Simulated assay, not measured.
Amino acid sequence: MNNINILVTGGNGQLGSELKELELKFPQYHFMFTNVEMLDICNHQAVAAFIEVNQITTIINCAAYTAVDKAEEQAELADKINHLAVANFAELSKMFNIKLIHISTDYVFDGMNYKPYTETVTPNPQSVYGKTKLDGELAMQKINPENSIIIRTSWVYSKFGNNFVKTMLRLGKEHKKLSVVADQIGTPTNAADLAKAILIILPKINNKTVDLFHYSNEGICSWYDFAKAIFEIGGLTLSVSPIETKDYPTPAKRPCYSVLNKRKIKEVYHIDIPYWKDSLMGNL
Rank of each mutant, 00 (worst) to 15 (best):
L171D: 11
V53H: 15
H214Q: 05
R263H: 13
L24H: 09
V181K: 04
A49V: 12
Y29W: 04
S158D: 12
A63M: 11
K277L: 11
K177T: 04
C42I: 13
I233G: 06
K159I: 10
Y257Q: 09
G161E: 02
A139R: 15
A46L: 08
T189R: 07
D135A: 08
K253C: 05
T9G: 06
N124C: 09
T132R: 02
L7K: 05
I151E: 09
D278A: 13
H175Q: 14
R263M: 11
L24W: 12
E267N: 13
G219C: 10
L238M: 11
G161H: 03
E218T: 10
T167D: 14
T245E: 14
T245N: 14
T237L: 09
G136C: 06
P145C: 06
N206V: 10
N12E: 09
Y117M: 12
Y215I: 03
M140Y: 07
A78P: 00
G136P: 01
S17C: 05
G10C: 07
D106P: 05
T153H: 01
F33E: 01
L202E: 07
I149K: 00
G186I: 01
N12G: 05
Y257L: 10
F213K: 04
R263A: 15
L77H: 07
A229G: 02
D193S: 04
D211I: 00
S148H: 07
D69T: 03
E244V: 09
K204T: 03
V165D: 03
L15Q: 03
N82H: 00
V180N: 02
M32G: 03
P145S: 07
H214M: 01
G130T: 10
Y157H: 13
T58A: 05
G161D: 03
W155S: 02
G111V: 07
F160N: 14
H175F: 13
F109H: 07
I59F: 03
A90M: 11
V8S: 03
S154Q: 08
L202W: 08
L84P: 00
L39T: 10
E244K: 15
A67C: 05
K99L: 11
G136Q: 04
N113S: 15
E18Q: 12
V240R: 06
K266P: 00
K266C: 12
Y117W: 08
V47F: 04
D278I: 04
S222H: 09
K166S: 12
N162T: 06
H83W: 06
D110I: 00
K133Q: 12
Y129E: 06
Q126C: 08
N206H: 11
H214N: 14
S216K: 10
A229M: 00
N206F: 12
V181Y: 01
N12F: 10
A78E: 05
L280P: 12
A75L: 04
G136K: 07
H214F: 05
D272A: 13
E146G: 01
D69W: 10
L178G: 13
C221R: 08
I271H: 13
A46K: 09
N207H: 15
Q141Y: 09
L24Q: 12
F89I: 04
V53T: 14
S216E: 08
Y248P: 00
C62I: 05
N147Y: 07
C221D: 02
T153E: 04
E218F: 08
K80T: 06
L84D: 08
N61S: 14
K208R: 11
K176W: 01
E146K: 15
G11I: 06
T189K: 09
S222A: 03
I143N: 13
